[in-house]
Amino acid sequence: MVPPTTDGGEYVRPDAETVLRVEGVEKTFGGVTALDGVDLEVRDGEIVGLVGPNGAGKTTLFNCIMGEHDVDAGSVHLGDTELTGMNTPDIVQAGLSRMFQLARVFPELTVRENVLINQDHSGETMLTTLFRETDEEVVRRAEELIEFVDLTHLIDEQAGNLSGGQKKLLNLACTLLSEPDVVLLDEPTAGVNPNLVDDITESITELNRDRGTTFLVIEHDMDVVHEISDHVYVFATATNLTDGEPNAALNDPRVLEAYFGE
């Protein structure tokens, strides 16, 4: 975790390169405005939290970033690469990966295969995928990630047989194989028992601290947000409400009003 710094009492974000930049993104579905000119910035090595009441547009923003939805206006950049208009596989190749809110696995593939699916697909053709095996180095890294999330004992088990929490951990391992620039996590601890919540949050902070992995995390559990985030964005009714250091952002009166009507 990048320690937040202060400068004369003002919160200052770490002076690192911006890896993911969202500018003025708008998205409507029929008459419903899901995103109304949202801005967001994730810097290298940060864990950025994204919170907001249900329907604020958080998951829609993830869908727009990953190319699942076309944006109506605005842009998304990963480093110098504009992602707007690109399709999802190309965005993944560009350096983003995503974990879904509900754990999603390929149920009839093994744990190992689920992770290996996420290898680099650039340059692959029908013939290379038919005749060439996965590089040993990639297999080794996949096994290392499976060990990291403590699923080695289930490595040859079909992923459909895992518990909900184990599937979440598997999803986390899957997002990391391609060594992405930014990992998008959509409620990584939702629906998981308290013991596994600790495992997941520890894994995220450890990855950030030891490997410098950058995360953008949607989370409803404020304890988790406080624990892992360097910087927090708060959304309400399809737009930015505020952002800043977790304590300050989450105690902002506008945020309390949005959540609790205080």
Binding site: M66, E68, N87, T88, P89, V92, Q93, S97, R98, F100, R104, V105, F106, P107, E108, L109, E113, L116, I117, N118, Q119, D120, H121, E124, M126, T129, L130, F131, R132, E133, T134, C174, S178
Partner: peptide
């Protein structure tokens, strides 16, 4: 051969969850 290859694994993943396959970087 296809069944045991990466191609077979990719095709089965598309059968199981096309959206997840796309998010795994598969075209």
């Amino acid at each position: 051969r296809m069944d045991r290859s990466k191609l077979g694994m990719y095709l089965r993943s598309i059968d199981m969850d096309q959206g997840l396959a796309r998010n795994s970087g598969l075209n």
